[in-house]
Design a protein around this nucleic acid. Structure first.
Lengths: 341, 341
DNA sequence: TGCGGTTCCCAAAGCGCTTTGAGTGACGAA
DNA sequence: TTCGTCACTCAAAGCGCTTTGGGAACCGCA
């Protein structure tokens, strides 16, 4: 059933039917009701391909997800981020088109999405401080929202959490408990968020006159295996840390495994604070929080980013929107006083 | 730059340019080269909206991902599955449109994708044995591939792994090591794969004359917290299991945590076999496999399912394609002889 | 009665591509 | 010369919708 047939069956023109369906005021209320009823009865859905062509809008937004160069890994936070965003897109009638590309091919992917007009805007995730995607998207005039910040942050819309403050506070918490040798198991430090977290960590140490020990700082893709391997190596070293700062719950699991294997317990011999993106399948809250953690739900961020992007698409004139979300620190069962003091 | 302008600049008709670009034989080789060069120079990309309308094909496939009713959880295997599929789609020039819907709204989502013509086919994941989506899609005539099986399996294309055999062999392995009280921490048993796994487990036990103990069997969403809580409860019970069978690495992590907390060690006091989907961020292979596991990479399954789906779309006449993949069992460091024997 | 203003509805022109059906010129064979 | 074949190329008709630019019918008012 298409518009033409529907119009014919109602003995109305396509114009009137289209207007009735799309809520234009030029059509009598009674006619509109008649049209709506007939559309429903015939299970009529306007053909989205035709509509997209006629309106010149794709009614779709793109998420370009990059596979890491090493492990072809797809960052586990993306799925929750998309869940949040997807809800908003669905509500607003937008499609989510997902491009999964190997590292290094993002540019091509964005260019293609733009030039063939299959999306009205794109989401940029995991930015580096000086991310080339920003300039690219500005050049081709494609609306976008960055989840995170870049050095060009004033020129575009973004949403980020207060990474520096969060890790500064987390470090302070451990310092207050008497810990002095605190290891940081960071994400990949080429990424903006990881740099900020390191900065917060370093600032907290230096504020107490403690020089950061490079041996205690690591950065890599945030997997359980990485947390395990690094924690194990550090604990077996000659001057092991008494506390860990992990940048994701997955890494924290790995640390926990290494600690447990040595017959130590988290919250007693070894303390651990992690950042928790509140991923749906990594719940930290069965009966009270297990990990002491800086928390900020990635899913809510996804929803808000999606709203911002749709706002940008619908009102192209408006300037960039920027939001910095605070992060709260909840104490769980993995932190305790430093046993050495 | 659109086709009309490109044609004008070349002093050719739109027809000829279109044909040259799309590889039709009616155009002289030299003309084709000229067109190709001009298109490249002008950075011309055909407008996908127009092309979709003209060809009547969406050049897109849909993945409908359901959020679980309880935790609004998005299954972590989806992201790796999509990574595999996405690669194939990109190669074949298809877009991936992702719908994220709350439990119970899948039907509406599929109907909508179909009736507004925004995709040429869909992927069905996490089927239940008697999944209503199958009949729905068959009724509306939308090509689809099921990742998993259903009771209507003969009537549609699917790809599945040998879940029953895998869990039977995993159970046998534990039985051979002398374990008699083996707990099964299954996925949600309304899902087809979980039923099969339970069947394999039960069959192995019964083959040795052991009656399955309902107290040792659980089914739920496969999270770390679930693995931890169940393992903890079981280990604290009056007749604790000496071995666990987990249906995902995440669950296995939880079991490991509970075991470690009690001062026990995996592979010594307690044995553990898990199914491993080889998720990119849950590597089990840092230096040799950690978990003894039945393994089958979900990502490869995603890629193959995508190929099957595109095949179905391009050759609508052909009958259903079905593939059952074997699962291999690799021994890691989490299994050992039953200490009681 | 005539006239401006509403209200409701319509025909037709796009949107940018693909595809059909037809035409042109060159060339060789009859 | 004429005709049939190739090898190329083109004009125009869609695809199914939205939107423009009118009209017809009716109203109240002078």
């Amino acid at each position: 059933m298409n518009l033409k047939e529907l119009a014919a069956s109602l003995k109305l023109s396509q114009t009137t039917v289209s207007r009735a369906l799309n809520g234009y005021p030029e059509v009598r209320e009674e006619t509109r009701r008649r049209v709506l009823a007939a559309a429903k009865a015939a299970n009529y859905q306007p053909n989205s391909r035709a509509r997209r062509l006629a309106t010149g809008r794709a009614m779709a937004v793109g998420h370009v997800v990059t596979l890491s160069d090493q492990g072809q890994m797809i960052n586990p936070v993306f799925s929750d981020f998309m869940a949040g965003a997807g809800e908003v897109y669905a509500r607003e009638g937008y499609d989510l088109v997902l491009s999964i590309v190997p590292a290094g091919e993002e540019e091509r992917a964005y260019r293609q999405l733009a030039s063939n007009g299959s999306v009205d805007g794109v989401m940029v995730q995991s930015p580096r401080p000086d991310d080339p995607r920003i300039a690219l998207l500005q050049e081709i005039g494609m609306p976008f929202v960055v989840h995170g910040r870049t050095t060009a942050r004033d020129s575009h819309s973004w949403l980020d959490i207060a990474n520096t403050t969060a890790f500064r506070r987390a470090t302070d918490l451990l310092l207050d408990l008497g810990h002095r040798r605190i290891a940081l198991l960071n994400g990949e430090e080429k990424l903006d968020f990881a740099r900020r977290r390191r900065n917060g960590y370093v600032a907290a140490l230096e504020a107490r006159g403690i020089a950061p020990d490079p041996a205690l700082i690591a950065g890599a893709e945030m997997t359980e295996a990485y947390g395990y391997a690094r924690a194990r190596a550090l604990l077996d070293g000659r001057s092991p840390p008494t506390a860990f700062l992990a940048s994701s719950v997955l890494v924290a699991f790995g640390v926990g495994r290494a600690v447990g294997e040595r017959g130590l317990a988290l919250g007693r011999e070894v303390s651990l604070v992690t950042h928790d993106d509140v991923l749906s399948y990594l719940s930290n809250d069965r009966d009270g929080p297990h990990f002491t953690a800086t928390r900020s739900p990635i899913r809510a961020a996804g929803a808000r980013c999606a709203e911002m992007l749709i706002g940008l698409i619908c009102n192209p004139g408006t300037g960039p929107v920027q939001e910095l979300w605070p992060v709260d620190l909840t104490v769980g069962r993995t932190t305790g006083p430093c046993p050495d003091t």
